[in-house]
């Protein structure tokens, strides 16, 4: 699943996800009919609208194949959010079935495939923002393990890593001042360690943090975990492997 955010803004993240999965020897399928996971309306309380979109997603991804999402947030929508709004619906089992085979990308690589180290080389100091939707899942640790294992990559821990970036979907437009203040605090902590790049498993967090930083006139370079993995593979002189 490419996610609507990558579909609209971050095509290179989707491209990198395909390349990373193919590197792992997997055959990648893509349904042209896919749209969105349904989270915006779910978070907004409009569960009728959300369920409509989730039903479309369930039909689009019918089958037994694992569904890999380069977003902790969209993945959590399918394995946690959707089952919550379908608790009393007749088709809750189909929704549950999709949820059980939906994975966030790094979680899939590390805990699904058992790949714990990443080949290639990526020369950078990285601030890794562990997105909130990875709370209670294995995603954050998985992404961090992969990044840490890349030759040349150094992770820079920063203050209050457990705190939210302030995005929160519709929260960011309904509560723009609180949302921005949260983001600015996060940026302050990140800037304090002067990383070459800010990395996360969720483009939504990076869109918010990157957008805030750019608006302030002090842009921060942001990359998705998938892009770092792909770039590490593409390092010239690296043995593929």
């Amino acid at each position: 699943m490419a996610t609507c955010l990558c579909d609209a803004f971050y095509d290179d993240v989707a491209v990198a996800t395909v390349e990373v999965l193919e590197h792992l020897g997997l055959e990648v399928g893509f349904s042209e009919a896919q749209t969105c996971c349904g989270q915006p309306a779910f978070n907004g309380g409009d569960w009728d609208a959300s369920r409509k979109v989730v039903r479309h997603t369930v039909r689009t991804f019918a089958g037994e194949d694992p569904v890999i999402v380069p977003s902790g947030s969209c993945a959590a929508m399918l394995f946690h959010g959707a089952p919550l709004e379908f608790e009393k619906e007749r088709d809750r089992d189909e929704v549950g079935q999709l949820g059980r085979r939906t994975w966030e990308l790094a979680d899939f690589i590390v805990n699904g495939l058992g790949v714990k180290t990443w080949p290639g080389r990526y020369e950078a100091t990285v601030a890794f923002h562990c997105s909130c939707h990875s709370r209670g899942t294995m995603s954050g640790e998985a992404a961090l393990a992969l990044l840490t294992s890349i030759a040349g990559t150094r992770i820079l821990p920063f203050g209050e890593g457990e705190q939210c970036c302030g995005f929160g979907g519709t929260f960011s437009v309904a509560f723009p001042h609180v949302s921005a203040a949260m983001g600015e605090l996060k940026l302050e902590h990140i800037r304090a360690v002067s990383p070459d790049v800010l990395v996360s498993a969720d483009m939504s967090c990076l869109m918010h943090l990157g957008g805030l930083a750019a608006k302030e006139g002090k842009p921060v370079r942001t990359l998705h975990v998938a892009q770092v993995l792909r770039d590490a593979l593409n390092y010239k002189g690296a043995s593929s492997g």
Binding site: N43, G45, C132, H133, R135, G136, E162, Q163, C164, G166, F167, G168, G169, T170, F171, S172, A174, F175, V178, S179, M182
Partner: peptide, 10 residues
């Protein structure tokens, strides 16, 4: 609605 649903409370 005054929450980014970050889950830190949970």
């Amino acid at each position: 609605k005054a929450s980014s649903l970050c889950g830190a409370c949970h």
